[in-house]
Amino acid sequence: MLKIKNLIKVFYPGTVNETKAINGIDLHIEKGDVVSLIGSNGSGKSTLFNLISGTFPVTSGQIILDGSDVTNMSEYKRAMLIGRVFQDPTKGTSPTMSIEDNLIVSSKKGMRGLNFSLYKKGAREQFNSMLDKIGLGGRLKDNVGLLSGGQRQALTLLMTMQSNPKLLLLDEHTAALDPQAADRIMQMTEDIIKTHSLTCMMITHNMQFAIGFGNRLIMMNGGKVILDVKGEEKKSLTVPKLISFFKSRGGEEFSDDAALLTD
Protein backbone atom coordinates (compact mmCIF):
# COMPACT_ATOMS: atom_id res chain seq x y z
CA MET A 1 0.00 0.00 0.00
CA LEU A 2 2.65 2.49 1.09
CA LYS A 3 6.40 2.05 0.54
CA ILE A 4 8.86 4.57 1.86
CA LYS A 5 12.47 4.22 0.77
CA ASN A 6 15.39 5.94 2.45
CA LEU A 7 13.38 9.06 3.14
CA ILE A 8 15.25 12.17 4.26
CA LYS A 9 13.89 15.63 5.02
CA VAL A 10 16.14 18.55 5.93
CA PHE A 11 14.60 21.90 6.83
CA TYR A 12 16.49 25.12 6.00
CA PRO A 13 19.45 23.27 4.44
CA GLY A 14 22.72 25.22 4.43
CA THR A 15 21.66 27.67 7.14
CA VAL A 16 22.30 27.83 10.87
CA ASN A 17 18.77 26.58 11.39
CA GLU A 18 19.37 23.39 9.42
CA THR A 19 17.38 20.53 10.97
CA LYS A 20 17.27 16.95 9.89
CA ALA A 21 13.64 16.13 10.63
CA ILE A 22 13.54 12.76 8.87
CA ASN A 23 16.79 10.89 8.89
CA GLY A 24 16.53 7.89 6.59
CA ILE A 25 13.24 6.05 6.99
CA ASP A 26 12.41 2.77 5.25
CA LEU A 27 8.88 1.63 5.83
CA HIS A 28 6.45 -0.74 4.20
CA ILE A 29 2.82 -0.42 5.20
CA GLU A 30 0.77 -3.38 3.96
CA LYS A 31 -2.80 -3.11 2.76
CA GLY A 32 -5.03 -3.40 5.83
CA ASP A 33 -2.34 -2.42 8.29
CA VAL A 34 -3.55 -0.24 11.14
CA VAL A 35 -0.52 1.48 12.59
CA SER A 36 -0.14 3.61 15.67
CA LEU A 37 2.81 5.95 15.49
CA ILE A 38 4.37 7.25 18.69
CA GLY A 39 7.43 9.26 19.63
CA SER A 40 8.42 12.32 21.58
CA ASN A 41 7.94 15.87 20.31
CA GLY A 42 10.22 16.60 17.41
CA SER A 43 10.74 12.96 16.54
CA GLY A 44 9.41 13.55 13.03
CA LYS A 45 5.96 11.93 13.19
CA SER A 46 4.03 14.88 11.81
CA THR A 47 6.78 15.64 9.28
CA LEU A 48 6.47 12.05 8.04
CA PHE A 49 2.72 12.58 7.51
CA ASN A 50 3.36 15.88 5.76
CA LEU A 51 5.82 14.18 3.42
CA ILE A 52 3.42 11.31 2.70
CA SER A 53 0.62 13.79 1.90
CA GLY A 54 2.91 16.12 -0.01
CA THR A 55 2.48 19.22 2.15
CA PHE A 56 6.17 19.83 1.56
CA PRO A 57 8.72 18.23 -0.78
CA VAL A 58 11.14 15.51 0.32
CA THR A 59 14.88 16.20 0.41
CA SER A 60 15.67 12.72 -0.90
CA GLY A 61 14.16 9.27 -0.98
CA GLN A 62 11.06 7.80 -2.52
CA ILE A 63 7.39 7.43 -1.60
CA ILE A 64 5.31 4.83 -3.41
CA LEU A 65 1.59 4.90 -2.78
CA ASP A 66 -0.68 2.16 -4.10
CA GLY A 67 1.89 1.15 -6.71
CA SER A 68 2.67 4.58 -8.12
CA ASP A 69 5.59 6.86 -7.31
CA VAL A 70 4.13 9.99 -5.70
CA THR A 71 7.42 11.48 -4.44
CA ASN A 72 7.14 14.61 -6.59
CA MET A 73 3.38 14.70 -7.01
CA SER A 74 1.57 17.80 -5.74
CA GLU A 75 -0.47 17.56 -2.56
CA TYR A 76 -3.89 17.84 -4.16
CA LYS A 77 -3.17 15.02 -6.65
CA ARG A 78 -2.05 12.65 -3.91
CA ALA A 79 -5.17 13.48 -1.96
CA MET A 80 -7.03 11.28 -4.47
CA LEU A 81 -5.93 8.27 -2.38
CA ILE A 82 -5.37 9.82 1.04
CA GLY A 83 -7.78 10.92 3.74
CA ARG A 84 -6.30 13.02 6.50
CA VAL A 85 -7.59 14.25 9.84
CA PHE A 86 -5.58 16.89 11.69
CA GLN A 87 -5.12 17.60 15.38
CA ASP A 88 -6.73 21.01 14.88
CA PRO A 89 -10.49 20.41 14.50
CA THR A 90 -10.79 23.56 12.38
CA LYS A 91 -8.56 22.20 9.61
CA GLY A 92 -10.91 19.66 8.08
CA THR A 93 -14.00 21.80 7.50
CA SER A 94 -14.95 25.18 6.10
CA PRO A 95 -16.31 27.19 9.05
CA THR A 96 -18.26 29.83 7.13
CA MET A 97 -20.43 27.29 5.32
CA SER A 98 -23.29 25.14 6.48
CA ILE A 99 -22.86 21.45 7.29
CA GLU A 100 -24.72 20.38 4.14
CA ASP A 101 -22.48 22.55 1.95
CA ASN A 102 -19.42 21.01 3.56
CA LEU A 103 -20.80 17.51 2.95
CA ILE A 104 -21.21 18.30 -0.77
CA VAL A 105 -17.60 19.46 -0.99
CA SER A 106 -16.36 16.26 0.63
CA SER A 107 -18.76 13.93 -1.21
CA LYS A 108 -16.15 12.78 -3.70
CA LYS A 109 -12.57 13.35 -4.78
CA GLY A 110 -11.60 15.45 -7.78
CA MET A 111 -12.73 18.56 -9.67
CA ARG A 112 -16.46 19.35 -9.76
CA GLY A 113 -18.73 20.77 -12.38
CA LEU A 114 -21.96 22.73 -12.41
CA ASN A 115 -24.14 20.00 -10.90
CA PHE A 116 -26.58 20.71 -8.14
CA SER A 117 -26.01 17.60 -6.04
CA LEU A 118 -27.43 19.10 -2.86
CA TYR A 119 -30.76 19.73 -4.60
CA LYS A 120 -31.14 16.19 -5.95
CA LYS A 121 -33.93 14.12 -4.53
CA GLY A 122 -32.93 12.32 -1.34
CA ALA A 123 -29.55 14.03 -0.97
CA ARG A 124 -30.52 15.90 2.18
CA GLU A 125 -32.24 12.84 3.68
CA GLN A 126 -29.08 10.83 3.11
CA PHE A 127 -26.92 13.50 4.73
CA ASN A 128 -29.30 13.70 7.64
CA SER A 129 -29.14 9.98 8.33
CA MET A 130 -25.33 10.17 8.18
CA LEU A 131 -25.36 13.07 10.65
CA ASP A 132 -27.78 11.23 12.94
CA LYS A 133 -25.04 8.69 13.65
CA ILE A 134 -22.74 11.38 15.05
CA GLY A 135 -25.46 13.20 16.95
CA LEU A 136 -25.81 16.08 14.49
CA GLY A 137 -29.12 15.06 12.94
CA GLY A 138 -31.32 17.96 11.86
CA ARG A 139 -28.45 20.47 11.83
CA LEU A 140 -27.79 20.46 8.07
CA LYS A 141 -28.18 24.22 7.75
CA ASP A 142 -26.06 25.23 10.73
CA ASN A 143 -22.67 26.78 10.10
CA VAL A 144 -19.80 24.44 10.91
CA GLY A 145 -18.15 27.25 12.88
CA LEU A 146 -20.90 26.84 15.49
CA LEU A 147 -19.92 23.26 16.34
CA SER A 148 -17.74 22.26 19.27
CA GLY A 149 -14.28 20.77 18.67
CA GLY A 150 -15.54 17.24 19.23
CA GLN A 151 -18.51 17.69 16.91
CA ARG A 152 -16.28 19.21 14.26
CA GLN A 153 -13.79 16.36 14.49
CA ALA A 154 -16.62 13.81 14.21
CA LEU A 155 -17.88 15.67 11.15
CA THR A 156 -14.37 15.75 9.69
CA LEU A 157 -14.05 11.97 10.10
CA LEU A 158 -17.44 11.50 8.46
CA MET A 159 -16.47 13.81 5.60
CA THR A 160 -13.11 12.10 5.15
CA MET A 161 -14.82 8.74 4.78
CA GLN A 162 -17.40 9.95 2.23
CA SER A 163 -14.85 9.65 -0.56
CA ASN A 164 -13.48 6.24 0.48
CA PRO A 165 -9.76 7.01 0.80
CA LYS A 166 -7.31 4.12 0.48
CA LEU A 167 -5.02 5.42 3.19
CA LEU A 168 -6.23 7.20 6.30
CA LEU A 169 -3.76 9.45 8.15
CA LEU A 170 -4.79 10.55 11.63
CA ASP A 171 -2.54 13.24 13.07
CA GLU A 172 -3.26 13.23 16.83
CA HIS A 173 -6.86 13.81 15.91
CA THR A 174 -8.14 13.52 19.47
CA ALA A 175 -5.42 15.53 21.22
CA ALA A 176 -7.26 18.87 21.18
CA LEU A 177 -10.51 17.42 22.56
CA ASP A 178 -11.81 16.96 26.07
CA PRO A 179 -11.57 13.38 27.43
CA GLN A 180 -15.17 12.36 26.70
CA ALA A 181 -15.05 13.70 23.17
CA ALA A 182 -11.66 12.06 22.62
CA ASP A 183 -13.06 8.68 23.69
CA ARG A 184 -16.06 9.11 21.39
CA ILE A 185 -13.88 10.02 18.42
CA MET A 186 -11.53 7.08 19.10
CA GLN A 187 -14.52 4.72 19.21
CA MET A 188 -15.82 6.17 15.96
CA THR A 189 -12.38 5.85 14.37
CA GLU A 190 -12.10 2.17 15.28
CA ASP A 191 -15.61 1.46 13.97
CA ILE A 192 -14.83 3.18 10.67
CA ILE A 193 -11.55 1.31 10.21
CA LYS A 194 -13.28 -2.02 10.88
CA THR A 195 -16.27 -1.47 8.59
CA HIS A 196 -14.18 -0.15 5.69
CA SER A 197 -11.17 -2.47 6.34
CA LEU A 198 -8.96 0.58 5.87
CA THR A 199 -5.24 1.02 5.84
CA CYS A 200 -4.53 3.58 8.51
CA MET A 201 -1.74 5.35 10.34
CA MET A 202 -2.44 7.21 13.57
CA ILE A 203 -0.10 9.53 15.43
CA THR A 204 -0.74 9.65 19.15
CA HIS A 205 0.95 10.83 22.31
CA ASN A 206 -1.17 8.49 24.36
CA MET A 207 0.63 5.16 24.86
CA GLN A 208 -2.50 3.45 26.08
CA PHE A 209 -4.30 4.41 22.85
CA ALA A 210 -1.28 3.34 20.84
CA ILE A 211 -1.12 -0.11 22.41
CA GLY A 212 -4.84 -0.71 22.11
CA PHE A 213 -5.09 0.50 18.53
CA GLY A 214 -4.53 -1.54 15.40
CA ASN A 215 -2.16 -4.38 14.55
CA ARG A 216 1.14 -2.54 14.38
CA LEU A 217 3.07 -0.03 16.47
CA ILE A 218 5.90 2.16 15.25
CA MET A 219 8.03 4.31 17.51
CA MET A 220 10.07 7.17 16.14
CA ASN A 221 12.92 9.15 17.60
CA GLY A 222 15.28 11.69 16.04
CA GLY A 223 13.73 11.25 12.61
CA LYS A 224 14.20 7.48 12.58
CA VAL A 225 12.03 4.44 13.20
CA ILE A 226 13.39 2.84 16.40
CA LEU A 227 10.68 0.24 16.99
CA ASP A 228 8.31 -1.53 14.61
CA VAL A 229 6.24 -4.34 16.11
CA LYS A 230 3.31 -6.32 14.72
CA GLY A 231 0.81 -9.00 15.63
CA GLU A 232 1.47 -11.13 18.72
CA GLU A 233 4.55 -9.16 19.68
CA LYS A 234 2.48 -5.97 19.73
CA LYS A 235 -0.29 -7.59 21.74
CA SER A 236 2.17 -8.33 24.54
CA LEU A 237 3.27 -4.69 24.81
CA THR A 238 2.61 -2.72 27.97
CA VAL A 239 3.18 0.93 28.80
CA PRO A 240 6.14 0.21 31.17
CA LYS A 241 7.74 -2.01 28.51
CA LEU A 242 7.45 0.75 25.93
CA ILE A 243 8.90 3.33 28.29
CA SER A 244 11.85 1.19 29.24
CA PHE A 245 12.50 0.47 25.57
CA PHE A 246 12.27 4.16 24.77
CA LYS A 247 14.70 4.97 27.60
CA SER A 248 17.20 2.43 26.31
CA ARG A 249 17.07 3.91 22.80
CA GLY A 250 15.81 7.43 23.07
CA GLY A 251 18.37 9.23 25.20
CA GLU A 252 18.01 12.34 27.22
CA GLU A 253 15.04 13.97 25.45
CA PHE A 254 12.66 11.39 26.69
CA SER A 255 12.42 12.43 30.34
CA ASP A 256 10.84 15.75 29.34
CA ASP A 257 8.12 14.04 27.43
CA ALA A 258 7.45 11.28 29.92
CA ALA A 259 4.25 12.89 31.10
CA LEU A 260 2.94 13.33 27.60
CA LEU A 261 3.79 9.83 26.57
CA THR A 262 2.33 8.05 29.56
CA ASP A 263 -0.69 10.34 29.99
Binding site: Y76, K77, M80, R84, G92, V105, S106, K109
Partner: peptide, 9 residues
Protein backbone atom coordinates in the same frame (compact mmCIF):
# COMPACT_ATOMS: atom_id res chain seq x y z
CA UNK B 1 -7.05 22.62 3.00
CA UNK B 2 -10.57 21.24 2.59
CA UNK B 3 -10.41 21.40 -1.21
CA UNK B 4 -6.79 20.21 -1.37
CA UNK B 5 -7.86 17.21 0.71
CA UNK B 6 -10.58 16.52 -1.86
CA UNK B 7 -7.97 16.31 -4.63
CA UNK B 8 -9.08 19.59 -6.21
CA UNK B 9 -6.48 21.97 -7.58
Amino acid sequence: QTVISMAIN
